[in-house]
Design a protein around this nucleic acid. Structure first.
Lengths: 167, 167
DNA sequence: GCCATCATGTAATTAGTTACATGATTAG
DNA sequence: CTAATCATGTAACTAATTACATGATGGC
């Protein structure tokens, strides 16, 4: 279970409110992890209970800003270094691409065309992130993963076009 | 929720028992979807209830062989063509790579080295699958996704090595 | 006879989604 | 004044994991 470490990681970059974290999951972590506010608020409470985050102040509209503690940083490092990652994955896109050969040729072609269009959208989005569009600090190394995403998309796009040509 | 369609897809390739499907998830679908037998048996019962699969015979040790029905094939096609895929994902590897810059340089280097080793293992496995190692029928186009996996791994490996060089 | 593998299920728990519920502030 | 956005939470439900439970067959 990686949600607590995703939250710790985002708070290690900068403190923030639950609402703020929800947007940061969406903006900078959407290719790696997804979490909605209904998961984030209870998780912040649990992490506080474990001493890994603490309230760093309250703002307007009843907002609570959270910061990672030294214990939280230690736990994040431990997880990155010691815990062997769970490589099993569920990826609906990969599942679809795997099953696409089951479709008759004409339906397969139109499905491939839709996938190509979606992939172009995704690449445009990641290129903006790789160029740095304010979601994270300007020179933050996190942008490296967006660049990786662009390269992976290029490979996937080329593959989709080959499949289309072969159909 | 894609589990029912993953099961239908595997049964569209060939009929099989719940036990058999469990192994096929592991062998040919592990890069796209993961499911254990405790999910598969109840799912087969549900699909039977919806008329999308049917029992195609019983074998030794109380085994039940399942086959997809025409209704099941129609549902699978409909899902592939009409349902817009859920692109939100959770990928622990991507999360780790995203958070790696938070580690001090020496720990980051050893973490990157471990990732490189794991990636080489994964590539070896996928290359065997792309060459065709009996998991699916010999000329089955499903092998195309293994080839895509190899190419993606190449890009990821190059990226990891760049990160290591920059650390 | 015993161990590996084949084979099927259920129960308890944890994780994640969707829906419900409420209220403050700000820009137009 | 009103709509968008900021802001936080809980409840109900669905999906997935881990643990429990049992038994057959085949090779050594």
């Amino acid at each position: 279970m990686s949600l607590p470490h995703a939250v710790l990681g985002l708070l290690a970059v900068a403190p923030g409110t639950g609402y703020d974290l929800t947007r940061r999951f969406e903006a900078s972590l959407s290719h790696a992890w997804h979490a909605s506010h209904s998961q984030i608020y209870p998780e912040l409470a649990r992490l506080q209970g474990r001493g890994l985050v603490q309230e760093a102040g309250r703002g307007a509209r009843g907002s609570r800003t959270w910061a990672i503690t030294d214990q939280g940083l230690a736990e994040l490092d431990r997880w990155l270094v010691e815990v062997q990652p769970n490589r099993s994955q569920r990826n609906e896109t990969a599942l679809r691409w795997f099953l696409l050969p089951l479709l008759p040729a004409d339906q397969r072609r139109s499905a491939l065309e839709r996938e190509i269009a979606d992939m172009l959208d995704s690449t445009a989005y990641l290129e903006a992130a790789a160029a740095g569009s304010g979601e994270v600090a300007d020179d933050h190394p996190f942008r490296a993963t967006a660049k990786l995403g662009v390269r992976i998309n290029d490979v996937m796009l080329a593959w989709l076009r080959e499949q289309l040509a072969d159909t």
